[in-house]
Amino acid sequence: MSYRFQFDVVLAQSDRFIEGAALTLQLSGEAIVFGTVIGILGALARTEGPRWLDWIVGAYVEVIRNTPLLVQVFLLFFGLPAVGVKFTATEAALFALTVNLGAYATEIIRAGIEAIPHTQFEAGLSLSLTRLQIFRHIIFMPALEIIYPALGAQFTLTLLASSIVSVVAANELTTVAQIIEGETFRSIEVYTITTLLYIAMALGLRSILALLGLVLFRRRRVVQPQVRMSGI
């Protein structure tokens, strides 16, 4: 084996890696927040809204879930200027990730809402609450608890999938890695480090979500003495 690993050349660029990783975190963090908001609204539209709205949101969900993120990124990147919207590559990437996660989150959250027995809803009605109050105070937390593992997994997938937005040079970690690879020609070293950074970020995100789960679902700690870290 004649190959000599040269990590030092690559590690000399550690500042740029960290910058890229920071942007990856920012991009996916924003996508997670906005995507979840879309998910909640989408799920409400599908469960509470009129039929035509259910249909429109359903079509959005199906289109997004049955086409690759890569193609969605390209479509937004090339499609938005056509309708006169100006943006940077990073903004297009954020938009694509948000729209993508929004579709998955809609379905996950809807499944959670539908998993709550209808009798809970009736109990709320009988106590003179409005539909919105019932959703907020009665349905939301138990539904969130049910879907928390699935939602967390989807968040992690979004973090990892953000590498795909490098196809429009979004300046996040993978874009940075590709630039450094082009400068140093140390492909293996560059992508090994990049992969390790992604793994670290993914594990970090999962740990944070697990901790958040412990805070959010206090009842589980009280009622069941042994707490399984909420598997994500």
């Binding site: 009798t119 809970q120 109990a123 009988s126 106590l127 003179s128 138990p142 009842r219």
Partner: peptide, 18 residues
């Protein structure tokens, strides 16, 4: 407004688990 005056108890309790 009407339901404020009417209490209802169900077969399946329907307490809020959280």
């Amino acid at each position: 407004e009407l339901r404020r005056e009417v209490g209802m108890v169900f077969q399946s309790f329907n307490l809020f688990p959280h």
